[in-house]
């Protein structure tokens, strides 16, 4: 039983480590890495399910009858590439947050947000300053 379920347990542990990073760490890049770990744990879960004892990779060869299940492979193959694309969008958002707030720590961002209106106005002012600069060049 230990061998049979070992992969599932590792998946749960990895998933929880990823979740912990996302909840407990304030740095946005660290959160993205946590999300990546979480994501990979799901990939490992799917791929482990597809495994068959004595099976080979799902590429048809003469004289082999036992193949691993190809369907999870397809789902995960596309999920990996979609994952990097969405991660890139998240990273782009982080870059913009850094430009607008000057920090990527969650607590400091919330602090800045919760300060009263004056500073808020200044933030808007600042971002418009960047925009104006963009137009100039």
């Amino acid at each position: 039983m230990i061998m049979g379920l070992f992969n599932d347990w590792v998946v749960v542990v990895l998933m929880m480590i990823g979740l912990y990073i996302i909840i407990a760490h304030g740095n946005l890049i660290k959160k993205i890495v946590g999300l990546t770990i979480f994501q990979t744990s799901v990939f490992i879960f799917y791929i482990s399910m597809a495994k068959i004892d004595g099976g080979t990779a799902p590429i048809l060869v003469d004289g082999v009858t036992q193949y691993s299940n190809p369907l999870p492979h397809v789902l995960i193959l596309t999920a990996i590439v979609v994952g990097i694309a969405t991660t890139a969008v998240a990273l782009a958002l982080i870059v913009r947050i850094k430009e607008a707030y000057g920090t990527i720590e969650e607590e400091e961002i919330q602090e800045q947000d919760s300060q009263h209106k004056d500073s808020h106005k200044l933030n808007i002012h600042n971002s418009s300053e960047i925009n104006r600069d963009k137009k100039e060049c």
Partner: peptide, 25 residues
């Protein structure tokens, strides 16, 4: 786990491009 296609993708994406993007950021 016999998932060669997936391994191929993960090696080029997970170890390659995503590391690079995060370094730039």
């Amino acid at each position: 786990m016999d998932a060669v296609d997936v391994a191929f993708t993960e090696a080029s994406v997970g170890a390659g491009i995503s590391t690079l993007l995060m370094l730039v950021v």
